[in-house]
Amino acid sequence: MQKLYIVGLFVLAGVFLLYGFVNPSTYSFFPQCPFHVLTGLDCPGCGSQRALHSLLNGNLKEAADYNLLLVFSIPLLVVHFRYKAASIFTGRDIRFRALDYTLTPILIFILVVGFAVLRNLPTELGNYLKA
């Protein structure tokens, strides 16, 4: 298990290096969202590669324009992985309690589906939310 975490950290570092230095919108070898290719619509994940590149280069505003959901998810992920790291290092089961509330996944579901719908509508908001 310990080994798996170390491998995971290396993979993560590699992904950050790749997406930090290479802009996905200028090279065609980055994978395209299959859902977008098939339907022409934006899924909740569309724009996340470009958003990650923007984020790693310190451009939060541009990242939010590509994929607002990714930017919103960062605080939650940071808190979760801080707890996770703490429980690995201390050997105790420390968890982010808010993730176990009944309401949390329901709210996240509403956010994700709402985002998916709104970003495909031909409105000013949709224009901002689309990838």
Partner: peptide, 18 residues
């Protein structure tokens, strides 16, 4: 699996995460 679900929703570009 909530965090994993969010991660696949954002990064695997498929509505399956929902």
């Amino acid at each position: 699996w909530l965090v994993e679900s969010i991660l696949v929703t954002i990064f695997c570009c498929l509505p399956l995460g929902i």
